[in-house]
Design a binder for these strands. Sequence first.
DNA 1: TCTATTTCGGATAGTTTTATCCGATTTAAA
DNA 2: TTTAAATCGGATAAAACTATCCGAAATAGA
Lengths: 148, 148
Amino acid sequence: MFSRACEYGIKATIFIAMQSKDARRVSLKDIASASNAPEAFTAKILQILVKANVIDSVRGAAGGFEIDAAKLSTLKLSQIVSAIDGDEIYKGCGLGLEACSETQPCPVHYKFAKIRNDLRLMLETTTILELAEGTSKGETYLKRDQML
Amino acid sequence: MFSRACEYGIKATIFIAMQSKDARRVSLKDIASASNAPEAFTAKILQILVKANVIDSVRGAAGGFEIDAAKLSTLKLSQIVSAIDGDEIYKGCGLGLEACSETQPCPVHYKFAKIRNDLRLMLETTTILELAEGTSKGETYLKRDQML
DNA sequence: TCTATTTCGGATAGTTTTATCCGATTTAAA
DNA sequence: TTTAAATCGGATAAAACTATCCGAAATAGA
């Protein structure tokens, strides 16, 4: 569904949010290990997210990554996905056709329209904070095996 | 959403179905031009679909590709996607985690569950025949600009 | 039987994505 | 001021995906 880079980015951002909630700044090393992702590759993804103003970084000793309070309260899943994968996934045509539209639909257009729209809606309404707090169901899923 | 190969595969299969409905066998050349896809690459994808028993092929002069009547009447979109991209897209975890499940959900599990399920359901219930017949809305979308 | 047409299959490029390495830069603290 | 700990940024390598080429095999029809 998403690229691996995007998956790493989502996991990383959720982890940073969990820590930022308690005003803890986290290092690349901690993020990579928490999300079971290669460190150097995670660094590249974090840089994308910093430039997209999704997360914040502080250089130098005692530096690291965090999300400021104002941002954290409104940050949506869609911002991460758009920054890393773009929005082709939930806005593009199911068959990758440039010319496909409502007035000139491709064969699968109406079959995909609802699903892509549901996906878009979900990404745009799901906050990182709710994911970091684990309010979807129980409370447990972020604790074991470095977030899985 | 899907790989380019999968998009080509879907377009190709719909085109073959359109012709097979009227008992016309079609050549690689016709398929590639109708779906605006590179010929040699399309050949590779068609071979995957033949091996997966999604479509049929006949070698030699006057040969080509077709879908036999029995197959055509039951062929689902999911069979093409599974053959080319696998079913990771609509069965896998949103964060690509091996261990994610109902009993051990990842942070985005419940957020993605419905969407992935809707996607799976759509792919498993949409027949190629209905796409080839253009019953989703009007009748026009497969006719112009080599199927778009 | 011969020829033209067509799919099949292996080899090979090119491009994008994923991943690693390492030096430069920044900054807190000794 | 020096040092250690971090992020930043460019270069590079590895893997996966996309794409092309060409000869082999099959087959209908002349």
